[in-house]
Simulated assay, not measured.
Amino acid sequence: MDEQLVKSRVVKIDSEESWNYFVSQANTQGCPLVVHFTAAWCIPSVVMNPFFEELALQYLDILFLLVDVDDVKELALKLEVKAMPTFIIMRDGVQVDKVVGANPEEVKKRIDEYLNTIRVNSHS
């Protein structure tokens, strides 16, 4: 199968408008968000991109957003993103977890932990 044919499930955010749109869509659907704050000049961030794409294909009930901090500076400030890459897990517009640095295992672990907590809560 040709890799290029697989449509990316990661949505690139290029403005506060698109951020607000996708966050409110996710909130409406009760869908968690995982956001990768990146920068084109930051090699560790760029290296994490393929991993982030893979995660998006594994966790189909989560919305994956990619934010280039140079495109949407205000957003990075608002969410207190000071280093790249930063990964933020959000639900209902609120940050529930944050991983700073290019650490694929940790990001995946935090997503799994987060999903386990909502599964436990939704069954009780």
Rank of each mutant, 00 (worst) to 15 (best):
V34N: 05
S122G: 00
V72I: 09
S15G: 05
C42H: 11
P104F: 12
F51N: 06
V35G: 05
S24V: 01
E80G: 12
G30Q: 14
A76E: 10
E105C: 02
V11M: 05
N49G: 13
L75W: 14
G30N: 15
A76K: 06
R119D: 15
K109T: 12
F22G: 02
A102H: 09
L33T: 01
L63M: 15
Q4R: 13
A102K: 03
R91M: 12
K12G: 02
V94E: 13
V11H: 06
Y114Q: 02
P32G: 08
F51D: 04
V10T: 09
T28H: 14
Q58T: 14
L55P: 03
W41M: 06
P50T: 03
M1F: 08
V35W: 00
N27Y: 03
R9V: 07
P104R: 11
V67M: 00
D70F: 07
D68W: 01
I111C: 09
V94R: 08
D61K: 11
D68F: 02
A26F: 00
R110V: 15
T86E: 13
P50D: 06
V46S: 08
E17S: 06
D2T: 07
D112R: 09
K7G: 08
I13P: 04
E74K: 12
M1K: 06
V47Q: 13
L115V: 07
V96P: 01
C42S: 15
F87S: 02
H123G: 09
V72Q: 04
A39N: 05
T38W: 09
R110Q: 15
I89D: 04
N49A: 15
C42R: 01
G93P: 07
L115C: 07
G101K: 00
P32V: 09
S18N: 09
K12P: 00
N49V: 13
P44L: 00
L63F: 02
K12D: 14
L66A: 10
A83W: 04
S8E: 14
R110K: 15
L115Y: 03
N103A: 14
V46F: 06
M84H: 01
L55F: 03
K82V: 09
R9M: 12
V99N: 06
I111H: 10
V99D: 05
Q58I: 13
D97G: 10
E17A: 07
H123Y: 11
L77M: 11
V107I: 10
T38M: 11
V23L: 01
F22A: 01
Y21I: 00
Q25D: 06
N49C: 05
Y114S: 08
Q25L: 03
N49Y: 10
K78M: 12
K108Y: 05
V34W: 08
E80V: 10
V99G: 05
Q25E: 07
